[in-house]
Design a binder for these strands. Structure first.
Lengths: 326, 326
DNA sequence: CTGAAAGCGCTTACAG
DNA sequence: CTGAAAGCGCTTACAG
């Protein structure tokens, strides 16, 4: 910057004014400075600027994992939203581990990042103290557990997701419905299902693993013990893919002999055979809302708490049909 | 830091020495300073330190996307490796888009990051100029295209991956083998297949989409046109999952009527029915090698070019069996 | 082993 | 509209 100033025959300060497009410099000088900038290939050092202004243009994001279609999509969308505002993203994964979460948070705090985005991992909630101590603005994202006091959160209506799934089955005439679920994590989805169904599920099997294999095993158990079910709801798509396999294995054709509905709408669900009817969460909107709220807090310095709940949407595909038994 | 110094009755410099554990301070003073640090909850500001030392302890990572099991896994492993060394990761996605890549790279360069990790997206190679201009140490990761001159790269032996898949089919007696491929991107895998098979594939269908659906469609085409094939190789697992569906749809049981082998070993492959025989790449090792090489370059300032090629490994599962036709 | 000074590359008031 | 000064929070020589 000094070099640029020298070359343009002005002061560092004037260079700064030009670079930051502050309209206080004569067109003449601007031109001279810009020429020098171009010739020297000068780019301002964000680090130094950050130190001087207290704004680093970096946002931290803490997620349980990246190797889950849902979080991967979320991180990607957040990076996009941030990119549009000139911000960079530093990510940390917690694996739902207390110590790791604490370490990540402590690490980020030293980075002088401008704000923090936290995804629910059923654990980070317990570490909120650390976040609060930093005084950093933060937004809770996709929070499925109980929502902490005095926080800004952008999340989905998980209960409604369950409701939409249940209502769909009900409208198709299903009375005996089985549930394969990631429980108790997805308790709200289950509550919603009950409401949509207008009755208790005939059987509920909690999956041990939050994976396709887990869904397969749980569905196998369920179908063996409750053969009367005409439909199954999975509390998320990965489980549903396993349920689909298990159903085929048990000689139940989907959707003729068994309807399947799920929640999440990961890409694989739409590409399964048959494609799975599921409930989609507007992840892109979440990313936009969360970042815009965070950046607003960064800009104003004000911390307005409040919960934004985004509505899920039913995506009807071929895995659901009218119940044969009426 | 000034506050800490005041409280401990020493100078900023001494505080700095204590915080950085430089063994030049009397135990006495160390204790006093540490007490003050604890009382004030002081943490050194990495930003300021970065400005002073020229090391930010941040590494940039540029990948085509996060919503692909392979890259997600890679990013996660890199974050882990970096975390172990006290580094933070800022990620950028390119979507294989020229302009976006350029923008990302320009953005990172202003950040004074310590180094850059670049994943092959078939495009970033063209932008290597920008990276070189920055003078930043960088390492190319999982490079499947042609390897640029004078670079450090840590990658997999893609040809061998294809070879292992082909050899497996050959050993099982398959002579008529079909290929469903992401071509020309996966040309090397195909070359390897040829070598392992010891002959030309009976049919090759390039998939239009790099997804399960793409694999399904390509396999449908292939099975319709070349019914004589006793085995199919997919050039990556997502395609293979689609092939599996298509085979079932066409009444070909896997592996009895059709063997299926693939490459990548994403989690879903092991959980499909039947689980897919595939070739695994040691992503964790790649992450470790790439970061350790990068950090070594950061530390020494020396840029040693060279290619590290990591060997893939065949994972035999239930989708392959001896050819019925002999 | 400890302290005073200069500097990393920027920005923010404040005079002129 | 332009320039000289001080400061962001640290570190790096260099004296004492």
């Amino acid at each position: 910057m000094k070099d640029v100033a020298l070359r343009a025959g002005v002061t560092k300060q004037t260079v700064s004014n030009v670079v930051n497009k502050r309209p206080v410099v004569s067109p003449d000088t601007v031109a001279r400075v810009e020429k020098a900038v171009a010739e020297l290939g000068f780019r301002s050092n964000l680090l130094a600027r950050g130190l001087a202004t207290g704004q680093t243009m970096i946002v931290g994001l803490v997620v349980p994992t990246l190797t889950s279609a849902f979080y991967a999509e979320m991180v990607e969308q957040i990076e996009n939203a941030l990119d549009g505002e000139g911000y960079n993203l530093v990510v940390g994964t917690t694996y739902g581990d207390q110590d790791r979460t604490r370490r990540k948070l402590e690490g980020l705090r030293q980075r002088s990042i401008d704000g923090l985005l936290l995804a629910d991992d059923g654990n980070v909630g317990g570490q909120l103290e650390i976040v609060r101590e930093t005084g950093l603005p933060f937004v809770l994202c996709a929070w499925e557990n109980e929502i902490p006091e005095d926080t800004t959160v952008v999340t989905f209506d998980y209960e409604k997701a369950g409701y939409l799934a249940g209502r769909q089955l009900r409208q198709l005439g299903h009375r005996q419905v089985g549930v394969v679920g990631d429980l108790p994590a997805h308790q709200r989805r289950l509550d919603g299902l009950r409401r949509g169904l207008g009755r208790e599920p005939a059987a509920i099997v909690a999956s041990r693993e939050s994976s396709q294999r887990g869904g397969y095993n749980a569905a196998a158990t369920l179908l063996a013990g409750a053969a009367e079910v005409t439909a199954i709801m999975a509390t998320h798509d990965l489980l549903a893919l396993g349920v689909l396999e298990a159903a085929k294995q048990h000689g139940r054709r989907v959707p003729d002999d068994l309807s399947l509905v799920s929640i999440d709408d990961i890409e694989a669900s739409g590409q399964a055979h048959p494609p799975v009817t599921t409930v989609a969460f507007p992840i892109e909107r979440l990313a936009q809302e969360a970042t815009s709220r965070l950046l607003r807090a960064v800009g104003t310095g004000r911390r307005r708490s409040g919960v934004t709940t985004l509505p899920p949407k039913l995506v009807v595909r071929a895995s659901t049909a009218r119940s044969a038994r009426r």
